[in-house]
């Protein structure tokens, strides 16, 4: 058989809509977030504090409910950081995600688990593991900031990123 020249590809754009249930604890989390409170869920048996809050303590295999939710600090400790500096298609939008961006893992005061989130710093020399960080609320940003919103809406964009605290702020 004579092989055809070229390396022909057929394009197909998957675009699947989903309505993922977020769970009762997350609903409560976002309600409280609107009031500027960050809530975790505390296992009634072992006391482990989960952030994000969820309905199951995997270690004890017991249920956590909204009654087990406890407020955490908006401040925490930086455990690790990176600056994402490569191109890729974001499956949430189907378009390229803008880069570079700061990406950190931190532990909010009071939580036993960790949080991975954006950071507004993109110079890797500015980070220091163990330093203090703070969750930023969208309405506290300067009005011309791309993540600024005049009020909290109770969704994930209420905290657009984590900010590194300067020594004098600690």
């Amino acid at each position: 058989m004579v092989r055809q020249k070229g390396e022909f590809q057929i394009r197909w754009k998957t675009d699947l809509p989903y309505r993922w249930a977020i769970g009762k604890l997350a609903v409560k989390y976002f309600e409280e977030l609107k009031k500027r409170k960050i809530m975790g869920s505390k296992c009634p048996k072992c006391g482990k504090m989960y952030m994000p809050p969820r309905g199951v303590c995997a270690d004890c295999f017991v249920e956590m409910t909204v009654d087990d939710m406890v407020e955490l600090s908006r401040k925490g400790t930086l455990m690790g950081f990176t600056v994402v500096n490569y191109p890729f298609v974001d499956p949430n939008t189907g378009a390229m995600r803008p880069f570079p961006y700061g990406y950190v893992i931190c532990q909010l005061d009071g939580a036993d688990t960790y949080l991975m989130h954006f950071c507004d710093e993109i110079d890797h020399t500015k980070f220091k593991i163990g330093q203090r960080v703070e969750a930023v609320f969208c309405d506290e940003l300067p009005k011309d900031h791309e993540s600024y919103r005049p009020e909290l809406k109770g969704d994930i964009y209420d905290i657009p990123f984590i900010r590194l605290l300067k020594d004098e702020e600690v």
Binding site: T14, R19, A21, P91, N92, T93
Partner: peptide, 11 residues
């Protein structure tokens, strides 16, 4: 508020 509406959109 009980659901998160999102998509999986991949070329």
């Amino acid at each position: 508020k009980r659901v998160f509406e999102g998509r999986i959109k991949v070329p």
